[in-house]
């Protein structure tokens, strides 16, 4: 009767052993270190953005007990990802599952290495979905929520599918109190963008804004109760070049309503940079529409 149970238990312990060499300890914050995953044999490590609190003196603990120095290549706070380069070669890179192949109920192990030894816990895929935008504005290719308990130091570690491939990087910081994993599609995109640009491009307008309530008549006309009043415009900024002036109330950008500051922030994505975006403002009680070309931060 217990044969199935013993096989299962041994398989799980075997999966942990097999994954051990691809999981590292990331020591880049004051409190307990976090975890990371080996992305490439030549030393690229992916981890959670919130695990990397300092930009230098980053140390990576490898499975063989060695500690090596690492530098920060770049980060994407929106997806809670950071890319590091460890001073090591000949590492074993992780292989990844396509998140589209996961089903709700699939068994998953979450691994961490907050110290020298690997640690593990078990859970299932709780909720899956298509592309979504994190509360901090990250674009993520699949929604992947699990019920794994994120023990201290587990952030940045891998979510492991039953076949031993990694399904994502676990984070407890992206949505408070919910265990999420960033799937490989997004990790790949973030790594490639950071390697190409040295950072994740973010859109830049050059305005200071504050949410305000619209006049009743305007609420009807615009179809929203609030907008973002422009309190300042930087000279020579994309907003200044588009003719935006202090006192304008921004209500729509690229066809989407901007009722709160975070609604604007999630629109300022890398792929909108350089594009002329339809911009709707209330100026002198009248609605006006013009084009504004999104700039980028450097």
């Amino acid at each position: 009767m217990t044969e199935a149970l013993q096989n299962l238990s041994q398989s799980m312990a075997g999966l942990v052993e097999q994954s051990d060499g691809k999981v590292v300890c990331v020591d880049a914050r004051q409190r307990l270190p976090g975890s990371g995953v080996i992305w490439s044999a030549d030393g690229l490590i992916v981890t959670s953005h919130h695990v990397v609190e300092r930009d230098d003196q980053i140390k990576i603990g490898l499975a063989d007990g060695k500690t090596v120095e690492a530098t920060l290549v770049g980060r994407d706070p929106g997806a809670d990802l950071a890319v590091l380069r460890a001073n090591a070669t000949g590492l074993t890179a992780a292989t990844w599952v396509d998140a589209a192949d996961l089903r709700v109920g699939h068994l998953l192990l979450a691994l961490g290495r907050p110290g020298s030894r690997i640690q593990a816990t078990l859970g299932i895929a709780s909720a899956l979905g298509g592309p979504w935008r994190s509360p901090s504005g990250g674009e993520i290719d699949h929604y992947l929520q699990t019920d794994v308990v994120m023990y201290p130091g587990f952030s940045g570690g891998p979510l492991v599918a039953a076949d031993g491939r990694f399904a994502g990087v676990n984070t407890s910081a992206l949505m408070r109190g919910v265990s999420m994993a960033i799937p490989s599609g997004t990790i790949r995109k973030v790594v490639e963008t950071i390697l190409t640009h040295g950072h994740m491009p973010r859109g830049y307008l050059g305005i200071g804004i504050q949410p305000v309530r619209l006049a009743d008549a305007l609420q009807q006309a615009v179809g929203q109760e609030t907008g973002l009043m422009v309190m300042s415009v930087e000279s020579n900024s994309p907003a200044a070049q588009a003719g935006m002036v202090q006192g304008d109330v921004l209500v729509k950008l690229d066809g989407a309503p901007v009722r709160h500051v975070d609604e604007l922030q999630v629109l300022l994505t890398g792929e909108r940079v350089g594009k002329a975006l339809e911009t709707q403002v209330v100026r002198g009680g009248q609605l006006q529409t013009f084009a504004m070309t999104l700039g980028t931060t450097k």
């Binding site: 149970l5 299962l8 238990s9 041994q10 799980m12 312990a13 075997g14 999966l15 942990v16 052993e17 192990l109 691994l111 907050p114 110290g115 030894r117 690997i118 640690q119 593990a120 816990t121 078990l122 023990y151």
Partner: peptide
């Protein structure tokens, strides 16, 4: 080994057995 299954028993709230299951997270001082 981390990841292997374990069960625990006792008398939570005086209930006999009180079986609960999980996996080994790790063995160590930390």
């Amino acid at each position: 080994k981390p990841g292997q299954m374990v069960l625990a028993f006792g008398f939570p709230w005086g209930v006999t057995g009180g079986a609960t299951s999980g996996v080994v997270i790790g063995v160590g001082t930390q």
